[in-house]
Design a binder for these strands. Structure first.
Lengths: 254, 254
DNA sequence: AAGTGGTCTAGACCACATT
DNA sequence: ATGTGGTCTAGACCACTTG
């Protein structure tokens, strides 16, 4: 059993607690403990967490406090709760990615995952834009993956990913699977937790148009994505160019 | 004081409760009561709700149950909670719209709200696409607003809104403010609660290009929005065409 | 000082899944 | 039957805002 230093030990907050540092509720401290376990891989994707009661007893708080911490993790899709079964570490299976990270859907028919063909994998020093997006040092290196993604053989997306070499060493050596986030988690212990996408409409360059097999100059949806890991570090930059004749990007505003 | 029929009166659920209808927690029933009050305008935008304790006493449940209902409403941005002050009905002020419903932001500089110039306001029978989007009957009428939106006089968006005449009678008569959602709430008692946007990259038609003051055929971001009211009814269809040279659409994936 | 939402606890019981 | 998460309650206390 591990030992944790909670800012507040037992029940009432002592008046000697430094109040200048701002108030931090117990359940957030507990949540931080859990996030740490996810980051460290103590709780690996797919695994079952101990029950609420066990966690409460271990850490020394009430079950309700553990519950509130787990509820927040569930809201952030880091954990999945299933009544009667238990609480599980979220996995990057195809379903989840389709739901959470892949917002392009066919105008007609059910959402699905495109096939991928890798066009090239290269390594080199990070460019200015990549360093900015990924928060890298000046001498950092990146691995770049360029690939074409299709529905039933019809080219849909041509995209270039930039990944920090330090985080994903040897990536350029092996095969590149279609589901990259699953690879990141399984081989490198890096869990993608969130992403921010910036969208523009652009005219296709000759190069990109050729890759997609369409005339140059036509409109394409450009998606500039930065994906963040569990601890908030940017770990992937991805520039996608999408043909949107029979496909759209879905954004729910709530 | 109003009277509510809760499926379960006191504390324990009797075994005679029809279980085939599925389980519906108390706090969701309470939440439904609150939503009804919002829909009916009993609680108008900007107003303060009674305190948790008062609501609990009135309805006959514990404060914790009221709290959970209010928490969900707060998550859905229907209500705003402020510690020490109270719980307020959410308003469609410019800040909220900018944060929740306007996802276009300048590449450089802080997010802001564009100016609008109304190009035309017309009424007529709903077309096929409008009926589908707004779930209208075959003989229903719509009011269409076409307007140009700009940053500092630089045209950014040309858009056409379609609104059910039945919901917004007389809309074509008066002036059209920049903040439509505020008008919907104030004049028609219709609160926009959520929206679904479908994005594509398209080539500008001669007509749209002329409105925007750019050459025809250039790329534009097409945003097809359907906005839903509190009770889930589609109440607005909006087709926007945006120049994204110096602006992007922001989408957070979490 | 008083009132509000926010946190934390302890305990009871319900719904769900598995054994 | 057992174990899990989910709901509901009651009460205490904390943090924040206002008079």
């Amino acid at each position: 059993m591990s030992v944790h230093k909670l800012e507040i030990a037992g029940r009432p907050r002592g008046p000697d607690t430094p109040e200048a540092l701002g108030f931090r509720p117990l359940y957030r401290q507990v949540k931080a403990i859990f996030v740490r376990r996810l980051v460290d891989g103590v709780w690996a994707p797919g695994a079952v967490l101990p029950s609420e009661g066990q966690l409460a007893a271990e850490i020394g708080v009430s079950q309700g406090t553990v519950r509130k911490a787990l509820d927040e993790l569930a809201t952030e899709n880091l954990v999945v709760r299933r009544q009667g079964r238990g609480t599980f570490v979220a996995e990057h299976d195809e379903r989840r990615i389709l739901f959470q990270f892949f917002k392009l859907a066919p105008d007609q028919g059910a959402p699905r995952f495109p096939d991928s063909v890798v066009l090239s994998v290269t390594t080199g020093p990070a460019e200015e834009a990549e360093r900015a997006a990924l928060d890298l040092a000046e001498n950092a290196g990146v691995t770049r993956i360029r690939r074409l993604r299709s529905f039933d053989g019809a080219p849909l997306i041509v995209e270039t990913l930039s990944l920090p070499q330090q985080l994903f060493p040897g990536l350029e050596g092996g095969p590149i699977p279609n589901n990259l986030y699953s690879l990141f988690a399984g081989r490198y212990g890096v869990t993608i937790a969130s992403a921010r996408e910036r969208l523009k409409a652009v005219a296709l360059t000759a190069d990109d148009a050729a890759a997609l097999g369409v005339p140059a100059g036509g409109p394409a949806l450009q998606i500039d994505r930065v994906a963040l890991s569990l601890d908030g570090t940017p770990v992937e930059h991805r520039l996608s160019l999408c043909l949107t004749e029979e496909v759209h990007y879905l954004s729910d505003l709530r």
